[in-house]
Write a protein that binds this DNA or RNA. Structure first.
Lengths: 234, 234
DNA sequence: AACGTGTTCATGTCTACACAAATTGGAAAC
DNA sequence: GTTTCCAATTTGTGTAGACATGAACACGTT
C-alpha cells in the first residue's frame, strides 16, 4: 500500500482501469468512481486521471457524461483502426520485391457512370490510368483509376511510367476525405488476364473515392490477386 | 488582430492548423512553428496547443519528434476508423427487419485445423455454432463459429436459439483483442444453400479471432450475401 | 575524418488550480 | 401531483509553471 510512488502516469492508470474491466472487477454498465476519487486512489491530480479516462472513452471502452459519470460500455463498438496500406509498403512488408508497371494512361471525357458516381459535370475530363503492382514478379494488384483533371491539373504533366498513380497523388494532393469500399467480385477477362487467374475466379476488390474539400479527386478500383487476405488487429 | 478573444479552444487551433495544411499554406514536410510560437500566436498556453497538435498527430496528419519538431506528413498513413458493426445494427441501419436463426449448436472436441489456428491443446472442447442472419427474410449472412469452452465456460448454459452467438459473447465476455480478416472466397455447397446463391459464386468473407488476455475465445467465419459491400469513410 | 560527449531545444507529461458546461436530483411553487 | 427552477456534482477545458525525455547539433578529442 504505497501511496505515491506507484510508477505512475496516465498510461499506468489507463492500463489499471483496463485490467479491472477485463478482469470483470468493473462489469459493463458499472458506474466508475469519479475522477476525484480516482485521483485520490492513484495519488495524482484529476488532470492525469482525466487524460487516462478520456482516452479510454475515445477508444470505445467507456462512456462518459457530465454529472452522470463514467460507465463501462456493455456492447463495445470497438473501432478498428486499420491503416490504409500503400501497395508498395504492403508488398515490401511481406518480403516481396515491389514492381510497378503502367498499362495505359490517357485523358478522356469522363464516362457516364463516373459522372454519375462522382457527381461530375457531363464530359468533364479525367485521366484514366490502368496499372499493375507485382510482388517479386507475381501479380499482386490490378488498379483501374480515374483522376479528375479539373481537381488536379498537375495530372496532365504527371508521368505514370515511373511512379504509380496512388503514390503520385499522395505526394501531390494534400489531405483528403476518402470513401473505401470492399467487396468480392468475379474476375472478368481483363482482370483474370492481368492477375493470372482463371476467368470468373472470386477477386477481393476495393473501391476508393477521394475528395479534396468537396471536389472529387479520384476514383480507383483495385483487384487483388488470388488468396489475398486483408487483416487488421485491434 | 485581436489578441485574446479569438473564439479559442484546442478545437479551434486544430481546425486552423488543419485548414492551413489543406489549403497548402503548410506543405507536406514543412516544419511547423514550435508549440511555444503557436501558443504565442493563439495567445494561449502551450498546454492547449499541445493538445491540439497531439490529436492531429494521432489522427495521422502530423509527425512529431522531440527536438526535431512537428512536420506535416507527406504520405499520410490515414487511419480508417471503421467500427465493426453488429449484424443486427447493420441490417436495421439499412432499413431491413433483422431476423436470426440458429442452424446448429453442439459442443465437440476441437478439429485439428482449429487447434492449430488458435494454438489450443489437442481435443480441447469447443462449441460449434452455425446460424443465419436475415434482413427482411432475405439471407444476409451465414455465420460459422467456434467458441472455446475453457475460456468461456458459460457457453454450456447459453441458449443460442433466441440470441446470436456474437451478441451473446459481447454481453458475456469483457473486452478482448480481435484479429479480423477479409477475403473473397467461393461459395461451397453449404454456403450457397444458406445464402441462396449459385455454387462457386464469389462471397465476401470475414474471419474473426478473439482473445481475452491471451486466451483464445472464439473463431468465427462469416459469409455475406451476394453484392455485399463494406464501406468506410475517413 | 571519425568518434564520443555534452549542451540545447522541442515535445511529453505532470502538478495545482480555476472556471465552464451539462445534467441530475431535489426543493419550491403551482 | 405536477411543473419549474435551482443547486450540486461530474466531466470538459483552460492557465501557469515545472521537470523529464529524447534527439539534433556543435564541439572537442582522437
Amino acid at each position: 500500500m504505497t501511496k505515491s510512488n506507484d510508477a505512475m502516469g496516465y498510461r499506468y492508470i489507463k492500463q489499471t482501469v483496463l485490467d479491472r474491466i477485463q478482469s470483470g472487477e468493473w462489469q459493463p454498465d458499472t458506474l466508475l468512481p469519479s475522477e476525484q476519487d480516482l485521483a485520490l486512489e492513484f495519488s495524482c491530480t484529476r488532470t492525469t486521471v482525466n487524460r487516462a479516462m478520456r482516452e479510454l472513452a475515445e477508444e470505445g471502452y467507456l462512456q462518459r457524461r457530465r454529472k452522470a459519470g463514467t460507465r463501462v460500455l456493455s456492447a463495445p463498438q470497438r473501432k478498428a483502426n486499420f491503416t490504409i496500406p500503400m501497395v508498395r509498403d504492403e508488398v515490401e512488408a511481406s518480403g516481396g520485391a515491389y514492381r510497378y508497371a503502367l498499362v495505359s494512361a490517357q485523358t478522356v471525357p469522363s464516362p457516364d457512370w463516373l459522372v454519375a458516381r462522382l457527381a461530375l459535370r457531363p464530359g468533364q475530363a479525367a485521366t484514366h490510368v490502368r496499372c499493375m503492382h507485382y510482388s517479386t514478379n507475381t501479380p499482386y494488384q490490378y488498379e483501374d483509376r480515374w483522376i479528375i483533371v479539373e481537381s488536379v491539373p498537375e495530372v496532365e504533366q504527371a508521368d505514370f511510367k515511373s511512379i504509380g498513380p496512388n503514390e503520385w497523388l499522395v505526394q501531390t494532393v494534400p489531405f483528403t476525405n476518402v470513401e473505401l469500399t470492399f467487396m468480392a467480385s468475379r474476375a472478368d477477362e481483363t482482370v483474370a488476364g492481368f492477375l493470372d487467374l482463371p476467368k470468373d475466379e472470386p477477386v477481393f476488390t476495393a473501391e476508393r473515392i477521394t475528395w479534396l474539400q468537396g471536389q472529387p479527386v479520384t476514383f480507383a478500383k483495385m483487384y487483388f490477386a488470388a488468396g489475398y487476405r486483408m487483416t487488421t488487429q485491434f
